[in-house]
């Protein structure tokens, strides 16, 4: 088993971008929000307040937070079932996200979707999609609409490395490239499709080759470094908006189990421990301290602000109403037409 340990990518000793201290602190706080929000989710799940499947993003926060920085309001985000971080980083109300998981009507999908199906059209978030690779063709269509209507918007499509084994990945790469559509394919490579390691499912483990073969430019980024992600995805989004699809592979790792009820038989605890040494939050916090842009007081303030946000989200979920059962069959069709 020890031979199979995957080593985390070397993180850059020097930051790639030198954003303002304020911006870098904002990145840190967003990642902390995602982390604390999900830690609270675990607690609420084990208390049976949240049910269904709950997939945690803990460890991968730098990917969603970094990638969202370069997206504009007109852009569209499609994500997987592990999308709490994407919703929060895209600016969806944390209370609406929590209420959704509680199955309440004030949830962002009125309690009809749950953890795996967070939707917020006002923030350009088209799910929360839980058929692996099933949303990639839709992202192609979003790009097609953008081209045909000349809106200049980009589709940012997040998916795990497990999706590249699906036919829909290949169909989508081909179509997006053939029609030169503004789609950024963001492959969150956390090494495991549920419990199947990438080398146990892919004959070719260099995933960027699969994109290149369709004529799609491919990049690999350290997904534990939020600043590297921000800079890399910013470049990819610019290319997509201008000329056509881009594939970005973000090397990351989930610290927690696949879902709540997962004994993690498929990986070694030492491997998890090794990756935890590269915690994206610690990485950025240390950098900020070294630059003199963060002290204990400031960090404590951030923790406090994040805790307040999470508390408020839970309160909103707790006090939310359940949708009346009489409304069960609503939202199957548009209401005005029936």
């Amino acid at each position: 088993m020890n031979e199979a340990i995957k080593h985390p990518p070397r993180t850059h000793s020097e930051p790639l971008t030198v954003g303002t201290a304020e911006h870098r602190r904002a990145l840190l706080q967003q990642m902390m929000l995602v982390r604390r929000f999900e830690e609270r989710c675990v607690e609420l799940y084990q208390a049976a307040k949240i049910r269904g499947f709950l997939h945690l993003y803990i460890g991968e926060e730098a990917v969603a937070v970094g990638a969202m920085q370069s997206l504009e309001p007109r852009d569209v985000v499609l994500a997987t079932y592990r999308e709490h971080g994407h919703a929060l980083a895209r600016g969806v109300d944390p209370g609406a996200v929590m209420a959704e998981m509680f199955g309440k009507v004030n949830g962002c999908s009125r309690g009809r979707g749950g953890s795996m199906h967070l939707f917020d059209v006002s923030h350009g978030l088209l799910g929360g999609n839980a058929i692996v690779a099933g949303h990639l063709p839709m992202a192609v269509g979003v790009g097609l609409a953008s081209r045909m209507q000349r809106t200049g918007s980009v589709a940012a499509c997040f998916f795990g490395e497990g999706a590249v084994a699906e036919g829909e990945f290949h169909e989508s790469m081909n179509l997006a490239s053939l029609w030169k559509l503004p789609v950024v394919f963001l492959c969150e490579n956390n090494s495991y499709a549920m419990g199947t390691a990438v080398e146990r499912s892919e004959a070719q483990t260099d995933l960027s080759l699969k994109a290149s073969t369709y004529g799609v430019p491919a990049y690999r980024i350290d997904g534990m470094d939020v600043e590297a992600v921000e800079q890399g995805v910013r470049g990819a989004v610019a290319i997509a908006r201008e000329s056509g699809p881009v594939f970005v592979e973000l090397m990351t790792y989930r610290f927690r189990a696949h879902s709540m009820y997962d004994p993690e038989l498929y990986r070694d605890k030492q491997e998890v421990a090794a990756w935890r040494e590269h915690d994206p939050i610690t990485l950025l916090a240390d950098r900020l301290r070294a630059a003199g842009d963060l002290d204990d007081d400031a960090l404590a303030q951030m923790e406090l602000a994040v805790t307040e946000t999470v508390d408020a989200a839970v309160a909103m979920a707790e006090t939310g109403e359940l949708e009346p059962v009489d409304d069960l069959t609503r939202f199957v069709h548009a209401e005005a037409t029936r």
Binding site: Y45, Q46, A47, A48, R51, G52, S259, M260, Y261
Partner: peptide
Amino acid sequence: FRMPSLGADM
């Protein structure tokens, strides 16, 4: 500290 519920099937 209670026995956690790790899924509806537990």
